[in-house]
Amino acid sequence: MNRITRATVHLAALRHNLAVVRSYTAGGARVMAVLKADGYGHGLTRAAGALTEADAFAVSCLAEALPLRAAGHRHRIVLLEGFFGAEEIPLFRREALEAVIHSPWQIECLEQAPAGEPIDVWVKVDTGMHRLGFRPEDAHAARERLRRCEAVGTIRWMTHLACADDRDDPTTTAQRRAFEQARAGLPGEASAANSAGTLGWPGVHGDWVRPGVCLYGVSPFIDGGERPPLRPGMTLEARLIAINHHRAGDRIGYGGTFVCPEDMPVGVVSIGYGDGYPRHASNGTPVLVRGRTTGLTGRVSMDMLCVDLRPVPDAAVGDRVVLWGEDLPVETVAAHCETIAYELVCQLTSRVSFVYAD
């Protein structure tokens, strides 16, 4: 029996989730599918291949954009952090890439760029995220400088929502107003809605929505409201490699953080933090064994973790263990780990075998 630690990426689920996004954008907003961080851990080019019906792609940097071009994708590609130095501008021109402009130094680079094919840009406005972008009162001046720049083609607008994952938080409405005021009277398409904005805030859709994590089947919301009809884009699984019978009072794993409350069977599973499963997963973090829910016992080790087999008395060595995916949303696991699903799907290591299936 080989050590099996496998992530199956469900390409049909990604296509389904894109269709769900379309159903939420009945007003006609176009879809910019976000593929950064290796397609949120699902594989950059394979995810792009499943999402070809999107109107554009978005990534963070050239290292993510260039493989998409090399794979033959002719979509518009927006780099969400723009260029990191003037030396990258020729590649933006050559590959017809679009740059988000968030800082004055980037405008200076474009003003000093030699003659050549102009590149399309998106002016980033900081409406409340306070990470990247021009202050709303400086947006007009930034756009005017770009408009006079021969290296710049079409100018569009962008902002990022800080609290859209909470559908009761008024911050999103305030950001929408600030964004509208910043570009009042000025032309140009606009984009504000991330996954949560797309699925929960139709008033911020604008001309372009930028769904990311929801395309991979993860609900972007933290408010406990209705879950969108998304399908998991990934199933992470391993195998039971041992079943041990312990006595009441026995302590399991490093530090003995789980104490057996009674005589009980404990399974050992072939996955650990060396594979990217979070070491800080708490006792009781759910897994599925034979399709039944049980929980972790003790600390996660580098190569293994232990699970309570009392709910699965017929478990056998070699049984499949689902860590997230089918009937176990990754955001549920993330909540037990006091993190977010984004981190879990993005941190799987090269020890995990990836399989792609429709």
Rank of each mutant, 00 (worst) to 15 (best):
W105P: 06
Q106E: 11
F92W: 10
H102Q: 05
A115M: 01
A96C: 12
D120Q: 05
V100I: 00
R93I: 02
A99T: 02
H102S: 13
F92V: 13
E108C: 01
F92G: 02
R93H: 10
E88L: 10
E98V: 14
I101H: 04
E88A: 14
I101S: 00
W105A: 11
R93Y: 02
E88Q: 15
F84D: 14
P90Q: 10
V100D: 00
F92R: 01
L91N: 02
A96L: 09
H102R: 01
E87Q: 11
A86L: 00
W105Q: 10
A113W: 01
A86P: 02
F92L: 12
P114Y: 05
A96G: 11
A99Y: 00
A113M: 02
P114K: 11
H102Y: 13
E95N: 03
W105E: 15
A99K: 08
P104S: 05
R93Q: 14
F92P: 09
W105M: 03
V121P: 07
R93S: 08
I107N: 01
V121W: 02
L97H: 03
L110D: 05
G85R: 15
V121N: 08
Q112G: 02
E95L: 10
A86I: 06
L91I: 09
G85T: 11
H102F: 13
F84S: 15
A115L: 10
R93T: 03
W105I: 06
H102A: 13
L91V: 13
A99V: 08
L110R: 09
A96T: 10
F84Q: 14
P90T: 04
E117K: 15
C109I: 01
H102L: 05
P118E: 10
E117G: 00
A86V: 07
R93G: 04
L110I: 11
E111L: 14
V100W: 02
A86R: 12
L97T: 11
L91F: 06
S103T: 13
A115W: 02
V100P: 01
I107Q: 03
L97D: 03
L91C: 07
L91G: 00
V100A: 04
H102N: 07
A99C: 12
R94E: 15
E111K: 08
I119K: 04
W105R: 08
C109V: 00
E108D: 14
A96W: 10
P104T: 03
G116I: 08
I101D: 03
R94F: 11
E111I: 06
V121M: 12
E88R: 13
E117Y: 01
E87I: 00
V100K: 01
A99S: 11
F84L: 15
P114F: 09
E87T: 10
E117R: 14
G85E: 12
Q112H: 04
E87L: 03
I89K: 02
A99P: 13
S103M: 04
